[in-house]
Design a protein around this nucleic acid. Structure first.
Length: 655
RNA sequence: GCCGCUAUAGCUCAGGGGUAGAGCAACGGUUUCGUAAACCGUAGGUCGCCCGUUCAAACCGGGCUAGCGGCUCCA
């Protein structure tokens, strides 16, 4: 189709153009498509690969142009922004070494090595200089160099982290390394980059944080500068506003405002739940218990403290002791290390309890799958720096279960479980992502068992048709797992539900069952949680609903507001009838102005505010008002029995 | 655990080397009111804790504790 001098370029609409080989993407767009697009273009995808506009096309292929209108365009300029920030940091703070600077969902970061930490004032100076660099509109230029050239260049610059990365890149089989420069600053990078620094509209630096080289805490401590970039100040302002709105949903803020839970320095990582918060907790607990009992589970309770010997059998003593609250034997020598003085520990997980429970008697294949559900209190000694509101605590309860079953039952059980999880999450309107995590470095059991477990779990997951992401090395120490993640208000993802397959525990605990053949067999264990933990789940729900819980979950489902003192009697009668129908109701007897009482109820995010005055008393009715402002929130005068029927239905557990 | 930041009244926050301030909430009184804030008054704090510098520390320095943003880890 093409002769030696010409190549055929296919555009996304299917049209084809012939141009001389060696034409750059930029020239092609300008001459064959249009000046407007040429001006807007940032980079292109040519024959499946992302390339710069200066890339010379040398063969037939499809070409797609990306501009600020594409999400990929924003990601690209943020990558440009990371380079710009790194360049000004090295100019302003000589001696600082660069490492890596990728983009994130919300912006970018760049990790630096420098003895002195960056101060907030430093950040301001860097941000100012970075934005000046944008105004200079310096072109990004690319060139390819050999390994030797690359090593020589970065050795001369004194960039020892970069030298390590270069060795890695070539070790993985790269033939050359691409360098990108703007001004006199150079970094290596796969690219592509935009045409010039001017195309990055505005850079905003957000924070500086510690990070470890290659993500390993044994390595050098780096300083990570987080930032974001937008094409215009207007877009940045809109994003900033959106961030502020998201922060208003923060469960730590709302938990205090709505009086749901509190923390005290005397018990870091362990919540005090108010009556309202406890109401949410117990409603969720009851809902899960009910669902489990309806789906072939039995609920059991087990001890909270166990002898060290149990943890040795389970493998926790070796692989999880750092996270366990040990109970020291006071008779022992105080100079000995804690793990030698410990005789027992608070349980950090329910699994060993359930294995002991299973072992209480001989089990038959007819009992399998044996599904044990427990909501006991667990303690994990989390690192102080890891604690965060309700999403990361030291004391919590899981909606935990262990399913002891035959290998042949795994697939069906995993399918049933993913359906249950999807059902619960959809009842809240929560969107989740699934991850499949395989054996970690810190593990028990031989590789043959892991091979078997990973294969069985992934096959079961595939059979459900659910989309999932692969997380190699992220499994529990005893088995591979499927994790279900939900994002909080500021986009951080938290693991909630989990399904974990365990071939190790049955071996360690020598678990068996008598099969139909009257012989002893080894079962398999599935660990699963749907909420994950009540604490984290409630934290996520608070943010998801911005504190405005659905009626069935709201701690106060209705508040009755008497217009004047003479209406209190009917208000109390309404409350009595509603409480008799198991509804959670309060009467506002504060005798404030009506508007003020309604405002209080609205701020408390009570689903229904029931105004009662002369008209309502006379008609044995209420005037319900939903959450929200203005006339549309007012449902008008409603007979009490009609309203009762409506709210009772809304108070039903949806799963 | 690591890096950085923060800590003033129940909450949100101002102030600042020389006897501590506001709004809301609380409490008392007046008001009895029709769909997002009535009015007047009262009370409330060893400025997170310890040590140091200073004639004098809430303010400056150090340590600790807790919280926040990340890293590591994790439900």
């Amino acid at each position: 189709m093409s002769d030696a001098a010409n190549i055929t370029i296919t555009l996304p609409d299917g049209s084809q153009k012939q141009v001389p080989a060696g034409t750059t993407v930029g020239e092609f767009v300008k001459t064959s498509i249009g000046v407007g697009l040429a001006k807007a273009a940032l980079f292109a995808k040519y024959d499946g690969a992302e390339v710069d506009l200066t890339h010379e096309m040398d063969h037939d292929g499809a070409l797609a142009i990306f501009t600020p209108k594409n999400p990929e365009g924003l990601d690209l300029v943020r990558h440009d922004a990371a380079h710009i920030v790194a360049s000004v940091v090295q100019r302003l703070f000589p001696g600082t070494q660069v490492t890596i600077g990728p983009t994130t969902d919300e912006g970018f970061y760049y990790d630096f090595h420098r003895e002195k930490p960056f101060t907030p004032e430093d950040l301001e100076a860097i941000e100012k200089a970075a934005n000046e660099e944008i105004k200079k509109d310096l072109p990004f230029t690319r060139r390819e160099v050999s390994k030797e050239e690359a090593l020589a260049l970065f050795a001369r610059l004194g960039e020892k982290f970069k030298l390590e990365i270069i060795e890695d890149i070539f070790a993985k089989g790269a033939k050359t390394l691409s360098l990108y420069s703007h001004g006199d600053w150079v970094d290596f990078c796969l690219g592509p980059h935009g045409p010039s620094t001017g195309r990055v509209g505005v850079i905003k630096l957000l924070s500086v944080a510690g990070a470890y080289w290659r993500g390993d805490h044994r390595n050098a401590q780096l300083q990570r500068i987080y930032g974001t970039a937008f094409f215009s100040q207007k877009e940045l302002d809109a994003w900033t506003h959106q961030q502020e709105e998201a922060r208003k949903r923060d469960h730590r803020k709302l938990g205090k405002e709505l009086d749901l839970f509190h923390f005290h320095p005397a018990a870091p990582g362990a919540a005090f739940w108010t009556a309202k918060g406890t109401s949410i907790y117990t409603t969720l607990s009851h809902a899960m218990r009910r669902m489990c009992l309806a789906n072939g589970y039995q609920e059991i309770k087990t001890p909270l403290i166990y002898n060290k010997s149990l943890w040795e059998t389970s493998g926790h003593w070796g692989k999880y002791r750092e996270n366990m609250f040990l109970i020291l034997d006071t008779d022992t020598d105080a100079s000995l290390p804690a793990e030698e003085r410990a005789s027992s520990s608070l349980k950090p997980m329910n699994c060993p309890s359930h294995y002991l429970f299973y072992q209480i008697k001989r089990r038959s294949y007819r009992e399998l799958p044996l599904r044990l559900h427990t909501q006991d209190v667990l303690h994990r000694n989390e690192a102080v720096g890891a604690l965060s509101g309700l999403t990361r605590v030291r004391q919590f309860q899981q909606d935990d279960a262990h399913i002891i079953l035959m290998e042949s039952q795994i697939s069906d059980e995993v399918a049933t479980l993913t359906k249950l999880i999807a059902k619960v999450y959809s009842a809240f309107g929560l969107e989740f992502t699934a991850k499949f995590a395989t054996r970690p470095a810190m593990k028990i059991g031989d590789d043959a068992l892991w091979d078997k477990a990973e294969a069985a779990l992934e096959a079961a997951l595939k059979a459900t048709g659910l989309a999932y992401e692969l997380k190699p090395g992220d499994g529990a120490f005893y088995g591979p797992k499927i994790d279900f993640d939900v994002a909080d208000s500021i986009g951080r993802k938290w693991q909630l539900g989990t399904i974990q397959l365990d071939y190790n525990a049955p071996e360690r605990f020598n678990m068996g069952y008598i099969g139909a053949d009257n012989a002893e067999h080894r079962p398999v264990v599935i660990h699963r949680a749907i909420y994950g933990s009540f604490e984290r789940f409630i934290g996520i729900l608070i943010e998801h609903f911005a504190g405005a819980f659905p009626t069935w979950l709201a701690p106060e489902q209705a508040r009755i507001v008497p217009v004047a003192e003479r209406h209190i009697e009917w208000a109390e009668e309404v409350a009595r009838q509603m409480r008799a129908a198991d509804l959670r109701v309060e009467v506002d007897t504060s005798q404030g102005m009506l508007g003020a009482m309604i405002r209080d109820a609205q701020l408390a995010k009570v689903p229904y505010t029931l105004v009662v005055g002369d008209k309502e008393v006379a008609a044995k009715s209420v005037s319900p008002r939903t959450r929200g402002t203005g006339k549309e929130a007012d449902l008008g005068i409603t007979p009490l029995d009609v309203f009762l029927a409506k709210i009772t239905k809304e108070a039903e557990i949806p799963y």
